[in-house]
Design a protein around this nucleic acid. Structure first.
Lengths: 208, 208
DNA sequence: CCATCCCAAACGGACGTTCACTTGTCCACG
DNA sequence: CGTGGACAAGTGAACGTCCGTTTGGGATGG
């Protein structure tokens, strides 16, 4: 329904991306580097080796780009976390897995994740409201996870649910500001390290 | 040297802010709400009840506003954390205090903090480099704090210093996205809660 | 021959900034 | 007391430029 015409190539052809897809990719990069409003359609076209007006043969407008990038990012987070809702494992294991998946989405999509966190305010009201609602579902996911952990006795009884969820979200979301995909740390490293620290605490165990 | 002429009023007069100061305040608000590039000088002037051109009697240009807002925010963080460098307390107490001060700066300056975290990329190269260097000093501050804690035996020996510092920074910085100054939580509440969770861990203590 | 892709030029509008000018206020001077 | 100049603050129009987008036409290839 969204696609006016499916690409004619066989599905087995990997390296040939639709022109439209290339545009989204470059837009993600430029929006993440310079910001939405500081990126002009002519800048974008220039990076693709064409003129500004030519973009409009493939997309309907500038905001279309932003909406699509943000929606795709949101869908990735959803896909990563949704299947965990009914996972039967105890809360600490689920938290560890959720953080891993969450961080992996960020790490594997640094550019769109950056756009997602920085530029969603510039969406028109309808799309803006959709993102806000989506944020609430993620919030709720982590809060329920924390609540489950408390009820199970896996987490401390005196935890403040909202604040705990906020702390977890801080850790996983903030990775978009510092993670470097080519570096020594894999998303798994970060997630395991973070989960170890969050679950076990920074303090050294009492000797005695 | 910066001020062409000192205000003629006595220093005891509190409510009378310089016009220039009002401009910075409104700019902080608009930049944080809409972003730097999406805020026009005419928008800004409109909120102050004047015409766009009139702003230039008080400021030298749009970027002047951004530089000043970002610099002031950076200075606040510096002032809050600098005196802790040589604090003789053990690392866990220092961490708790650092987080409190850090969060308080964010909470007391939500607008400029938001501008600081979101718009510093749009600074011209010179100011941009200054902010980058400043970020490094904050990074270093928390890394040294973690290292001190490990050396003292207060923190676990197997902590990864960089990752631990990143986790702490995630927690305190991310507050700019969700904290609401009028709400039930004070900066102290948040800092104490976060520090409790980080130091002690989320997991319930083993029962014997 | 039609569809696809792109160019080149143009559109109206918004942008940051400048500038000559008016206004209001205060103080020095006769 | 009256006047005039200095000065700060704001007006409103204009500047050149860049913006997102539209349009008509040219090239290419099944």
């Amino acid at each position: 329904m969204t696609d006016p015409a499916a690409p004619p190539e066989s599905a087995a052809e990997a390296p040939a991306k639709t022109r439209r897809e290339q545009i989204y990719d470059v837009a993600s990069r430029l929006f993440s580097e310079r910001g939405y409003h500081a990126t002009s359609m002519r800048d974008l076209a220039g990076e693709l080796g064409m003129q500004g007006g030519s973009l409009y043969a493939h997309i309907s407008g500038k905001e279309d780009l932003l909406i699509e990038i943000v929606n795709r990012a949101a869908r990735q987070f959803d896909a990563a976390l949704f299947t965990l809702r009914d996972d039967p494992r105890p809360a600490d294991h689920k938290l560890r897995e959720a953080m891993y998946r969450h961080i992996r989405v960020v790490a594997d999509n640094m550019e769109s994740a950056t756009v997602f966190f920085h530029e969603w305010k510039h969406l028109s009201p309808a799309a803006y409201a959709r993102v806000t609602a989506w944020r609430d579902t993620i919030d709720t996911f982590y809060r329920e996870l924390v609540r489950q952990g408390i009820d199970e006795g896996v987490f401390r009884q005196d935890l403040d649910v909202k604040m705990t969820a906020n702390l977890i979200l801080s850790a996983v979301n903030w990775t978009y500001t510092w993670y470097r995909p080519g570096g020594t740390l894999t998303p798994r490293d970060v997630a395991e390290g973070y989960a170890d620290m969050l679950l076990g605490g920074l303090r050294a165990p009492e000797e005695g």
